[in-house]
């Protein structure tokens, strides 16, 4: 409904600002620009900035870190993540640049017809990106989900501990012994509330749901210890419900 009231008011002018009035926005932009220029010119600053990725990489290498994969399932997901991260960062930068460009340079985009914006930005750009990403993720998922393995270990989650039962009938509590370099199928159950079985460095999680037996196939590439936790909130003892997965070459011969 286009209806116009046009009784003008001299105070109206005060409501609209020159963008330069926003000191913070301009200071922020100048700061980013200085950083970039400084990065190119001053070797010491470059070192400082280069330190950050190292710090970041050190941080990634943690006991429960998704970014420090130690098995094929987790490795595939970590690769997917880095693709999505860099792609997402590029799209984010593009969107923000477009918005600021249009805001700071009024009439800059006047030459582009409206239809191009909407069809190009709304369909032509996102659809192929999403199709490629979703296709790749489904292909990855089809390879890792719903598989089976000849070695089965039962994991029973209860408030608030993990019991693991092995093919030979033995049991351990809060320590899961795995063969290294070989697929194992973990059958996850719960007698009380919902828990979730998760060893971040080996692969995704699977819920332990009372009344259901869920399966996940994992493989540790090398012998070692990997942290595991209950990922679904299960009451006041939830935080203590962690376990250790120990992968060894001589599994089953002990």
């Amino acid at each position: 409904m286009q209806r116009m009231t046009r009784d003008s008011d001299e105070a109206v002018g005060r409501l609209f600002l020159d963008l330069r009035d926003d000191g913070v926005l301009f200071a922020a932009m100048r700061f980013v620009g200085d950083m970039f220029v400084g990065f190119l010119h001053a070797p010491t600053r470059r070192l400082g900035l280069a330190g950050f990725p190292i710090l970041f990489a050190a941080g990634c290498d943690r006991d429960l870190s998704v970014l420090s994969p130690a098995g094929p399932a987790a490795q595939g997901i970590a690769t997917l993540w880095w693709w999505m991260f860099w792609g997402g960062a590029a799209i984010f930068a593009l969107m923000l640049a477009l918005f600021l460009w249009l805001l700071l340079r009024p009439a800059a985009g006047r030459g582009i017809p409206a239809r191009w914006w909407i069809v190009g930005g709304g369909l032509v750009f996102p659809l192929p990106v999403l199709a490629a990403l979703t296709g790749a993720a489904l292909w990855l998922g089809e390879g890792t989900l719903g598989g089976t393995a000849s070695t089965q270990i039962e994991a029973e989650a209860r408030m608030w501990q993990w019991t693991f039962r092995y093919p030979d009938g033995s049991e351990t509590t809060d320590v899961l012994h795995l063969p290294a370099g070989r697929d194992v199928e973990i059958v996850v159950t719960s007698p009380d509330v919902i828990h979730s079985f998760w060893i971040p460095r080996l692969g995704g999680k699977i819920d332990a749901i009372p009344g259901h037996a869920n399966r996940i196939v994992l493989r540790a590439d090398a012998p070692g210890e990997y942290g595991g936790v209950c990922a679904e909130y299960c009451g006041t003892g939830h935080v203590d419900m962690s376990f250790t997965a120990v992968a060894s070459d001589d599994w089953g011969r002990e």
């Binding site: 998922g141 692969g203 995704g204």
Partner: peptide, 9 residues
Amino acid sequence: MVPFDLQAH
């Protein structure tokens, strides 16, 4: 994306 969500969920 299903596989990534299984880690991030």
